Simulated scan of single mutants.
Amino acid sequence: MPSTHRAVGPLRVLLVLLFAGLVVAQVAVLPPTLASLADDEPDLAFLQWPALAFSVVELVCVQVVIVCTWRLLGMVRAGRIFSEAAFVWVNAIVATMVVAWALALAAFVSVSVLVDGPGLPVLLFGVVLAGGALVLLMIVMRALLRQATTLRADMDAVI
C-alpha cells in the first residue's frame, strides 16, 4: 500500500493540470477553432454551434470524472476505498461515462448522415468503440471493487 500512497500525490498534480487544460480548451481553444473551421468550410458552417456544444459537454463529462477520481484518491489515501461511500463516486463515473458515450454515439450517427466522406465518421466510430470499451471496463472495475469491499467487510467481521 505504501507505493499506492506515493502515486496519489503525482496523480493529483496531473489531474489538476488536466482539469485546467480542459477549462482552457473549453474557453479559449474550441470556440475560435470551430469558428475558423466554419469560415474555411462554409458547407459545414451550420455544424459550428452543435460541435461546440457537443465538445463542451464531452469535456465537462471528463471534468466530472476527474473530480470523482480526486475524491476516490482521497479515500485511497485515508484507507477507506473499500467502503460503501466509494460507490457514490464510482457510480458517478460510470453514469458520466455512459452519458459521454451516448453523446458520442449520437454525434457519430448525425455526422454519418450529414457529412460526405469517411474521415470524420470513421474517427467518431473509433471514439464510440473506445468509449464503449471504457464504459464496460469501468463496470467491471466497479464489480471488482464490490467484491473487494465485501471481502474486506467479511474479514473485518472475522477479525
Rank of each mutant, 00 (worst) to 15 (best):
M1C: 14
M1N: 15
S3P: 13
H5F: 15
H5G: 13
H5D: 14
G9P: 03
P10H: 03
L11N: 08
L11S: 11
L11Y: 00
V13A: 12
V13T: 13
L14F: 10
L14T: 00
L14A: 15
L15K: 01
L15C: 03
L17K: 10
L18G: 06
V23L: 15
V24Q: 05
Q26V: 03
V27K: 14
A28D: 07
A28P: 02
L30E: 04
S36V: 01
L37P: 01
L37Y: 02
A38D: 02
D39R: 15
D39Q: 14
D40Y: 09
E41C: 07
P42L: 07
D43A: 14
L44T: 07
A45F: 06
A45M: 07
Q48C: 06
W49I: 14
L52I: 00
L52V: 00
S55Q: 09
S55L: 14
E58G: 02
C61F: 11
V62T: 11
V62M: 14
V64G: 05
V64L: 13
V65A: 15
I66G: 02
T69K: 02
R71S: 11
L72I: 12
L73E: 03
L73R: 02
L73Y: 02
M75Q: 15
R77A: 15
A78F: 09
G79S: 06
G79C: 09
S83I: 05
A85S: 06
F87I: 00
F87Y: 02
V88L: 14
A92D: 10
I93L: 01
V94M: 01
V94D: 03
A95D: 05
T96G: 07
T96Y: 00
M97L: 12
V98D: 02
A100W: 03
A100E: 01
A100I: 00
A104C: 02
A106C: 10
F108W: 13
F108G: 00
V109Q: 04
L114A: 14
L114N: 07
V115G: 08
L120T: 14
P121V: 05
P121S: 07
F125A: 12
G126A: 10
V128F: 01
L129Y: 06
A130T: 08
G131A: 06
G131I: 03
G132E: 07
G132L: 06
A133V: 15
A133E: 10
L134Q: 08
L136P: 00
L136N: 10
L137V: 08
M138V: 03
V140C: 04
V140M: 01
M141K: 09
R152G: 10
D156I: 10
D156P: 00
D156N: 11
A157K: 11
V158A: 15
I159T: 12
I159E: 14
I159Q: 12
